[in-house]
């Protein structure tokens, strides 16, 4: 498992390159490699923007020894999200406003789960299958 601390902006670029590299090693298609890297970029940027401290964990996974995928976790100690439902609806994030980019990241991933506590932080997990 690869663990990357997100402190400055270059860490976002590093995190998404690593995700891309692992996906390439596992033989992901160009489309899926890019989807994963883009989702990682979105979610890592949230950590950079809204939290003092956070990390991205990238891990290749396999289901029943047959299905191959990559799991990424985004854990931060930021302010947390008060209304997850609102934040997960499109329209909250557009080209014009900042938003959290979560619905987009979810669409790019195959599996997506989020938990957050105001004042404590947020934890997001995504999985992209090959």
């Amino acid at each position: 498992m690869i663990s990357i601390n997100i402190v400055d902006e270059d860490d976002i670029i590093y995190a998404r390159s690593e995700a891309r590299r692992v996906a390439e090693e596992k033989g992901f298609s160009l489309m899926n490699k890019t989807r994963l890297a883009t989702a990682v970029s979105e979610l890592a940027r949230n950590i950079y923007r809204y939290a003092d401290d956070g990390m991205v964990q990238i891990e290749p996974i396999s289901e029943d020894g047959v299905k191959v995928g990559i799991r990424c976790r985004f854990i931060d100690n930021g302010p947390g999200i008060k209304d997850i439902h609102q934040v997960m609806t499109d329209g909250f994030s557009t080209e014009k406003s900042l938003g959290y980019g979560l619905p987009g990241a979810k669409r790019l991933s195959d599996e997506f789960s989020i938990s957050s506590e105001v004042g404590k932080g947020t934890s997001i997990e995504i999985i992209k299958w090959k």
Binding site: T38, S93, G104
Partner: peptide
């Protein structure tokens, strides 16, 4: 093509 598809999936209509 890849950029176009990911942009649309992200929800960025541009």
């Amino acid at each position: 093509p890849v950029a176009t598809i990911t942009l649309l999936e992200l929800g960025m209509r541009m």
